[in-house]
């Protein structure tokens, strides 16, 4: 019995380690190539360790992507903050003030997070052009907030549904109104779900490509569009490209590594069962 158990445990760990290698391989490649000196960059020795650590690839990549990293930052900060405020209000109203057909309305709103945006792209471009928000970052912020309404509402609604209704009832007996309950009872309890939603919207907007490539001019490209352009260019060496990819992925990677708990909660909310 015991040897068999040891064997099966070893096998389990072996599979898990192999799987980890598969999941870390692309990140390892980005790091490995990024820290190599130019002289040692050769496709044939892609997997060889560098003789010494260098950051010249990152400097070259930074020179290419710095304006776009800045654009992405200008995009995600107001977007994630405003989105979460809106989601919080909607989530509160839908979970604690169920009016007639509120479940139907919630479901109709939720559908908006599943649609392929190709099905609204033509009207969106024409509309953004009409209101003169086409081409720049404010328009992109606006679009991300609008199409973020379903997921932010969902996450907050599920979170608020877990706050006991009795507590709200007690507050109402004490004379608190709908807005008063929100300000003094709900909002102080909302910090964790604000963290979840801000991180989720940050990641979504940072990683978005479709809206960005359609709605912004070259000068205002966020980092995903610029990276894709860089990858298609014949002028950029692949080691610089790997460093650039790591730079583009770094903010969301760091958020995941530092605040992973909140990120995963947002992730799981996407499957509806908060």
């Amino acid at each position: 019995m015991m040897p068999r158990r040891i064997a099966s445990r070893t096998l389990i760990y072996l599979i898990l380690i192999l799987a980890s290698a598969f999941f870390l391989l692309p990140i390892y490649l980005m790091l490995l190539t990024g820290v190599k000196p130019f002289a040692e960059v050769d496709l044939k020795t892609m997997w060889n360790l560098p003789s010494s650590l260098h950051i010249e690839n990152f400097i070259a990549a930074w020179a290419q992507l710095a304006p776009n990293l800045k654009n992405s930052l200008i995009l995600v900060i107001p977007e994630s903050i405003l989105s979460s405020l809106l989601g919080s209000l909607n989530g509160y109203l839908l979970s604690k003030w169920r009016f007639k057909n509120s479940n139907l309305i919630f479901t109709l709103i939720l559908f908006g997070m599943f649609i392929p945006y190709q099905s609204i792209l033509i009207p969106l471009v024409k509309f953004m052009d009409f209101i003169q928000l086409y081409g720049g970052l404010p328009g992109l912020v606006f679009v991300h907030i609008i199409y973020g309404i379903p997921i932010t509402t969902l996450i907050f609604r599920n979170y608020y549904a877990g706050i006991s209704t009795e507590m709200l009832e007690a507050g109402r007996i004490d004379g608190a109104s709908l807005t008063g309950l929100y300000r003094f009872l709900i909002l102080p309890l909302s910090a964790p779900s604000f963290a979840v939603v801000i991180i989720w919207q940050f990641t979504q907007a940072w990683n978005d490509f479709l809206f960005a490539v359609i709605l912004t001019n070259q000068a205002y490209w966020p980092v995903t569009v610029a990276l894709n352009n860089l990858a298609g260019s014949q002028l950029v060496q692949w080691n610089v490209l790997m460093a650039a990819t790591l730079l583009a992925a770094l903010p969301t990677l760091l958020v995941y590594l530092l605040l992973g708990r909140f990120f995963v909660r947002g992730l799981m909310a996407g499957s509806l069962k908060g």
């Binding site: 999941f23 870390l24 692309p26 940072w206 990276l227 790997m242 969301t252 995963v264 992730l267």
Partner: peptide, 18 residues
């Protein structure tokens, strides 16, 4: 944590590396 890590990266970045 390792298995979920790729979820935080954009499809563009992962497409480029892959």
């Amino acid at each position: 944590g390792i298995f979920l890590l790729p979820m935080s990266i954009s499809f563009i970045a992962s497409g480029v590396v892959w």
